[in-house]
Design a protein around this nucleic acid. Structure first.
Lengths: 198, 198
DNA sequence: CTTGACTGAACGAACGTTTAATTAATTTTA
DNA sequence: TAAAATTAATTAAACGTTCGTTCAGTCAAG
């Protein structure tokens, strides 16, 4: 057993995830990733073709483990609304547990490089979206499945996306960060809508 | 009248807005802004202390004209739900018209620099949030005003945030980009919730 | 002894920023 | 009102750093 074990490709990716999650493609340098993984910049070029490839693999790696769980969640033939509840609870819990996952998703959607965003959306994000879409189809034709999917994902995401900034806004309480509170709020809103008399 | 009129501070900001909206703080260099405004990098340092100040002023400038309009919108004493409808229609129309506005908001929320994000949220975004909060208070105590504000803003934002990526996802149609379709979808969802029988 | 994993050093380019000098506009003076 | 003095706006050039990337060589493992 060597004292300083060699870093595998996957080790590097795991260490790169929080870096790219925090600062995005432009905000992270090869040297940042290198020093985080205790390697030389040149060593990274042995594992990855260039910075683009390193970034792509990192985002893909962060997504891979997550999306498979979602699919299994809604395989059964429960009622539409029950499946939706399960999905939202899972999604909220996942975003809460894995903050990097949510951040990377935002970076992908903001990416100024069209080609990079395209391949990331197709290869990495489409899977999660299709799962949500299947859920949304249960509420057709009242709602367009595509638009409803976007709404559901956005409704969950925004509570995490705003987490850093919210603390400087009036009325913020620590309880708003709790996954149970967030999922309960969203489910209530989706089930009943705004008017309390219903 | 001179042939190449001098750029005022505001002219520079107007030219910087689309740059920072597209690529964020790290993705835009002083030289980018300089060449866009047909100035030397050094000339920018006559108008702005450093890159941070230029970025801050740019974001602030892009927000200033927008948020004042929102306030006037809900001054009157209509019913809560009617005010909400007006707000959503205005917000959707604004984001649709001014794409840079939405992008900059996303960049602010993703900012890895805590101090920079804090001052931008306090100085620039809080105004719009407070307006939304006043709306949300009408639905208290069924909903926590703070959480409901976040949900409403997120519900609108996500349809624009996903605009670039959506085209690579199944079921996307051009009609989903139309402001009227988006606002109608959101209002319907907020008023009635998911179950069509209600 | 070959192959895989890595290092040290360097490349040119781009980065944010500063400096001294120059031009354009404005104000003051004669 | 024209010239002079003053201030405002801008320039070219350069500073030290950091960037992504390459390359020749080294070291350990099979």
């Amino acid at each position: 057993m060597s004292k300083t074990p060699r870093k595998s490709r996957e080790d590097i990716l795991n260490l790169a995830v929080p870096l790219f999650a925090k600062s995005g493609f432009d905000g992270v340098s090869i040297r940042n990733v290198a020093s985080q993984s205790e390697l030389t910049p040149a060593a990274l070029y042995y594992h990855f073709k260039d910075k683009e490839a390193l970034y792509f693999e990192t985002v893909k790696h962060a997504f891979e483990t997550k999306t498979t769980a979602a699919k299994e969640l809604i395989e059964n033939k429960d009622e539409a609304i029950a499946n939706l509840e399960k999905f939202i609870i899972w999604f909220v819990a996942t975003l809460n547990k894995e903050n990097d996952f949510q951040k990377l998703l935002q970076w992908v959607l903001l990416d100024s490089n069209t080609k990079r965003m395209q391949s990331l959306v197709k290869d990495v994000f489409a899977d999660l979206f299709i799962t949500t879409r299947k859920l949304a189809e249960s509420f057709s034709p009242s709602y367009d499945p595509h638009m409803l999917s976007i709404s559901i994902i956005g409704l969950v995401l925004c509570h995490f996306q705003s987490q850093q900034g919210r603390q400087y806004l009036p009325g913020n309480k620590a309880v708003h960060d709790q996954p149970r509170v967030i999922s309960a709020h969203i489910i209530n809103l989706l089930k009943n809508g705004l008017p309390s008399s219903c």
